[in-house]
């Protein structure tokens, strides 16, 4: 088997619900992140050191980052955990495709190379954006769809739909394309060229996670902002 991003199959059934390969991979990723988080915060110290220090610094940094990004601090505080989770999940998923064996061991490939995964993430973002808008402005939030005039409704709707769609397609396209190119390179030249490409992939995987998170934050900020 040799399936870079081309894997599609049901691993087993949980009652009537089919469980795909990527779902199991996601479980592994969740377990990994969860164990690291557990280890980091198992024994909280007043003066942090080691793993706790690194993990704390990461979380605090994301708080600062989102606060800077979103202007309103209470919004940033409220949605920073969600956005951090996006970031962690996506970056670990992306990197899981760079471990030897991804796309070769049957059933193992990065979840973000599957467009069902990225669609789910983009839908969560879209849903969160609308919820955040309503939570901040109440029913006045609907007003921004018809501003500055009702004539703009289709344009505003198109923009609103384009947001999650761009998130979904960019993440999937990048990771899937990366996997494809990697497979192709490995097919052509088994050693040197792929290693160059993988160096690039290390960077690209991180950038895609950051971009997804930043854009989600920006959409939430726009929905909860002053309105236009």
């Amino acid at each position: 088997m040799f399936t870079f991003g081309m894997l599609d199959g049901v691993l087993f059934h949980l009652g009537p619900i089919p469980v795909d390969h990527i779902v199991v991979t996601q479980w592994a990723i969740i377990a990994l992140i969860g164990i690291v988080a557990f280890m980091a915060t198992r024994n909280m110290q007043m003066v942090p050191r080691g793993l706790q220090n690194a993990f704390e610094a990461l979380i605090v940094w994301t708080y600062d980052f989102f606060t800077q990004l979103m202007d309103k601090e209470h919004i940033a505080k409220k949605y920073a955990p969600l956005l951090s989770t996006f970031f962690l999940f996506i970056i670990v998923s992306n990197y899981s495709g760079l471990i030897p064996g991804a796309g070769q061991i049957p059933g193992y490939q990065p979840p973000t190379a599957n467009w069902n995964t990225t669609l789910a993430l983009a839908l969560i973002t879209a849903f969160t954006v609308q919820v955040a808008g309503f939570a901040e402005h109440g029913l006045h939030y609907l007003g921004h769809f018809v501003s500055p005039s009702p004539l703009m409704l289709p344009l505003n709707l198109l923009e609103e739909i384009a947001h999650p769609l761009s998130l979904f397609l960019r993440l999937f396209g990048n990771i899937f394309g990366e996997e494809m190119i990697l497979a192709f390179m490995l097919f052509l030249a088994p050693f040197f060229v792929p290693s160059l490409l993988m160096g690039l992939s290390v960077l690209l995987a991180a950038i895609q996670a950051v971009v997804f998170t930043i854009l989600s934050a920006n959409y939430i900020a726009t929905a909860t902002g002053e309105g236009h």
């Binding site: 469980v19 779902v23 969740i30 999940f89 995964t117 669609l119 789910a120």
Partner: peptide
């Protein structure tokens, strides 16, 4: 199914 599973997994995380 995969989309639903992903959403569930995300919220578990």
């Amino acid at each position: 199914y995969a989309i639903g599973w992903t959403a569930v997994n995300f919220f578990i995380l």
